[in-house]
């Protein structure tokens, strides 16, 4: 039973990283010169939102099974407060920290229209920090002997890094380019 829980925890963990990677990639697509438009943009946004909910479902199972199984010592507190678990304090802590950031991202997105836009933006962009933390957490802890899990996680890493590079290196969209150009003029 315990071993099944441990296996389910690792499997749902990898699933969570896969979904998180997909969500981050879709989010990264929203900017830049080749960002989607109209109907395409609607699909990207809808999938971005829905996948994030699916990811939460897998994540909850991942965390719950990790707490309940007794093979390694991770309690509820260490699932919320980073770097407090008995087992692999640093690597589990990274995962916990990633979840804390994720909770902030989800909460600010849920209540976006009640918050200052800048606050939402800062928290939402920290998803680019949360993703590598989750990835490293998964790589170190969950994939040692399982080729499929390891391969999936590495693939997520490659795809995610690719998306982040795309985001950093993409030329600005014509809207952004024109705004920036006019902003250079005299306005004070």
């Amino acid at each position: 039973m315990n071993e099944s829980l441990w296996y389910v925890s690792r499997a749902t963990g990898v699933a969570s990283i896969a979904l998180l990677t997909a969500v981050v990639v879709l989010g990264a697509l929203v900017s830049g010169r080749r960002r989607p438009h109209g109907e395409q943009a609607t699909v990207v946004m809808a999938v971005h939102r829905w996948l994030s909910l699916g990811m939460v479902a897998f994540l909850l199972v991942h965390i719950a099974t990790a707490i309940v199984e007794t093979y390694v010592s991770i309690d509820l507190v260490s699932a919320l407060v980073p770097f407090t678990s008995g087992y692999e304090t640093l690597w589990v802590g990274l995962g916990t920290l990633a979840v804390d950031v994720l909770v902030a991202v989800l909460a600010t997105s849920w209540w976006r229209h009640r918050l200052p836009e800048r606050a939402w933006r800062v928290v939402h962009y920290s998803a680019y920090l949360l993703w590598p933390m989750a990835l490293v957490h998964g790589l170190v802890l969950g994939t040692a002997n399982e080729m499929p899990l390891l391969a999936t996680t590495i693939l997520c890493g490659v795809v995610g890094v690719g998306a982040i590079l795309w985001r950093l290196l993409a030329l600005p969209h014509h809207d952004r380019a024109r705004r920036d150009a006019v902003l250079e003029q005299e306005w004070t």
């Binding site: 438009h37 109209g38 943009a41 014509h174």
Partner: peptide, 21 residues
């Protein structure tokens, strides 16, 4: 507004997009 155009899809028949998006 930066011209993503999602509104025109969600509100088809009420909002549409110009040539610049």
């Amino acid at each position: 507004c930066t011209g993503h155009g999602i509104c025109a899809t969600v509100l088809e028949g009420r909002f549409r997009l110009d040539e610049h998006g």
